[in-house]
Design a protein around this nucleic acid. Structure first.
Length: 590
RNA sequence: GGAGGCGUGGUGUAGUGGUUAACAUGCCUGCCUGUCACGCAGGAGAUCGCGGGUUCGACUCCCGUCGCUUCCGCCA
């Protein structure tokens, strides 16, 4: 080794020892005589003191040294003078009295500052990711991610799960997101897809008798960018045989608690509360409710069905709802900001946001005149309104009402600072509908995927009323974010056939796409179920990172790797081998 | 596919229809023996993303375009 210790190792107990450290120069403070160098590595920072009275040669080198140079410093660990102790530094009680300073590598001035208090913009950070990652907070994130992954592996291994890798070149399926596709050279005109998840393979492993499987699986989805999404992300993917929901919940809760403990030391109480999908929608508007604050949705539908305000009464007459929020203390919100809330809900297809200010004298609003005194009183009581509150309303289809108010609620919580720090509200969302009606294509489609087992008591409605059928599927939500999802799967061909029937997939099509799985089920498939947790999202929470990208070493920006510039064109020769011709780029199509 | 935001020295920001384009930090030089966001003095560094238009005059206003970003659609 070129060093005897790291830059985080040394403390008072090493005083008097002769040591050698290697690292990057974080800062140089030249006092004309003595020069202080802060030397940084993954483990910390240590002050190197170059005093010309001790050693002239190393002092001369210290005058030359610049930030981010890689150097090696030898000397004796000394206690700092009492007035020079630095309590803000882990190694602040000691310093290295340097008598040998060696430059291992010089560095150009970096295009961004290696400083947690001066973070550059995302594009620069990603292009020079190797510099961005030098920052202590990023090193910390990478470390936390590693510890979480290790702990999860250990946890699952201890419970009999086998870590098994599944193929990364799989058959493309039109379900779900768009696939990333890889051309085959040996079989021109044919393509592999990168897996969106190991779903089908892990089910095959259950048929194979593996009983308990897990994998930290890379998953690929060709979707448009979102703050909490990456084209490549990692799932803690697991599957278990002979289980029901409670067994899966127990394991997943254990994983989460283990991960938090390992990553941040935070103790998570298991036995997460459960809430049905319908209750989540009714009370919070979203299937991933943030339960860290109140301001739940208030249903006025029955009160305003026959009111004089036609926007409300018509919405009800058309099968819609009128719901709203009570923004406590919001009456002082200026008109301009209320209008902004109106603009906000329009994103979610709401036509507008009605509002009333609650005053000592009653409800003050341009729409108050359309309501009778009794109606206004009823609204106030329903909202438990107090003077200085602001009531807002959306009247629309149940879906628009829920979505717009649900997101408005989250938006307001952030804006009004209603979200407490350091609270981790886990919640299981259960009893999802099996199917979702696709307006455009006029057909039912699976809410989760087509291998989800319907609830026993709803099985009878599969043919007659698919919308009524609930599935044995569940999401885990943390602070309003979906951490993962899973289900109990279908293991019987007859039920599978019925489900495929609902979504309008005939035997031939099913055979073509999933024939291998259906075939497997003919040979004795155990009841099984599983879950997939988003590792990136989980670690981001544990590390309290601003963004999921902060816990991924080399994330993508809009599907582009700013580090290596991919995706990139390939050689003509490669294209020929693959029998691929590029017929046009976006600009010259159409 | 659609909507919004941003784009100004290396980096992060400020800015106004007429400026010498400001500030911080970084960089370079000099001074300084106890700093640790060291300090002090000086210096270099920007055709204000790109193209077009309006105007006597555009970094500023308008249109287009590119890039990044957030969101809708899409998607666990």
């Amino acid at each position: 080794m070129l060093r005897t210790h790291t830059c985080g190792d040394l403390s008072k107990q090493h005083i008097g020892e002769r040591v050698t450290l290697c690292g990057w120069v974080q800062s140089v403070r030249d006092h004309g005589g003595v020069i202080f160098i802060n030397l940084r590595d993954r483990y910390g920072e240590t002050q190197i003191v170059c005093d010309p009275r001790r050693d002239q040669e190393s002092h001369r080198e210290a005058e030359r040294v610049r930030k981010e140079w890689v150097v090696r410093a030898s000397g004796v660990v000394e206690a700092r003078p009492p007035e020079s102790l630095n309590p803000n530094m882990a190694t602040g009680e000691i310093e290295i009295a340097c008598d040998k300073l060696e430059t291992l590598s010089v560095a150009q001035t970096p295009p961004l500052e290696i400083d947690d208090s001066k973070v550059a913009n995302e594009e620069i950070r990603l292009r020079y990711r190797y510099l961005d990652l030098r920052r202590p907070s990023m090193q910390r994130n990478l470390t936390i991610r590693h510890r979480v992954a290790q702990a999860v592996r250990q946890y699952l291994s201890d419970r009999g799960f086998l870590e098994i890798e599944t193929p990364l070149f799989v058959r493309s399926t039109p379900e779900g997101a768009r696939d990333f596709v890889v051309p085959s050279r040996l079989y021109p005109g044919r393509f592999y897809a990168l897996p969106q998840s190991p779903q089908l393979y892990k089910q095959l492993l259950m048929v194979a008798g593996v009983d308990r499987y897990f994998q930290l699986a890379p998953c690929f989805r060709d979707e448009d960018q979102r703050a909490d999404r990456q084209p490549v992300h990692t799932q803690i993917d697991l599957e278990m045989s002979f289980v029901d929901e409670a067994d899966v919940f127990e394991v997943v809760e254990g994983i989460v608690a283990t991960a938090f403990k390992a990553g941040s030391g935070i103790e998570v109480a298991t036995g997460f509360p459960r809430m049905s999908y319908q209750e989540a929608i009714d009370r919070y508007g979203l299937d991933k409710p943030d339960t860290r604050f109140g301001m739940e949705l208030i249903d006025y539908t029955d009160l305003v069905a026959d009111c004089g305000f036609s926007i409300f009464s018509k919405a009800v007459a058309n099968g819609g709802q009128v719901k709203g929020l009570n923004i406590k203390g919001g009456a002082t919100m200026p008109r301009r900001e209320i209008d902004e809330l109106g603009e906000f809900v329009k994103i979610y297809k709401a036509k507008g946001l009605a509002w009333m200010r609650v005053t000592d004298d009653g409800l003050e609003s341009s729409i108050a005149k359309f309501f009778t005194e009794q109606e206004l009183t009823a609204i106030r009581e329903r909202a438990q309104a107090e003077p200085s509150d602001l009531l807002v309303f959306v009247a629309d289809t149940p879906k628009v009402v829920a979505t717009s108010l649900g997101w408005l609620r989250n938006h307001l919580a952030r804006k009004l600072d209603l979200i407490p720090d350091d609270v981790y509200n886990f919640i299981w969302i259960t009893d999802f509908p099996m199917f979702d009606w696709n307006e455009e294509e006029n057909r039912w489609e699976p809410m989760h995927h087509m291998f989800t087992m319907p609830k026993q008591e709803d099985m009878q409605f599969l043919a007659s009323d698919p919308g009524r059928v609930k599935g044995r599927l569940y999401d885990l939500v943390l602070n309003g974010m979906e951490l993962g999802s899973g289900s109990i799967r279908i293991n019987r061909p007859d039920i599978q056939a019925e489900v495929m029937n609902v979504i309008g997939m005939d035997r031939a099509e099913a055979e073509r796409r999933f024939g291998f799985l259906l075939k497997a089920f003919d040979f004795g498939a155990p009841p099984h179920g599983g879950f997939a947790l988003g590792l990136d999202r989980l670690v981001a929470q544990i590390a309290q990172a601003e963004s999921m990208r902060d816990v991924i070493a080399f994330p993508y920006a809009s599907g582009v790797s700013l580090v290596d510039g991919s995706p990139a064109e390939i050689d003509e020769q490669q294209l020929r081998e693959l029998r691929i011709r590029v017929v046009g780029t976006e600009g010259d199509q159409k």
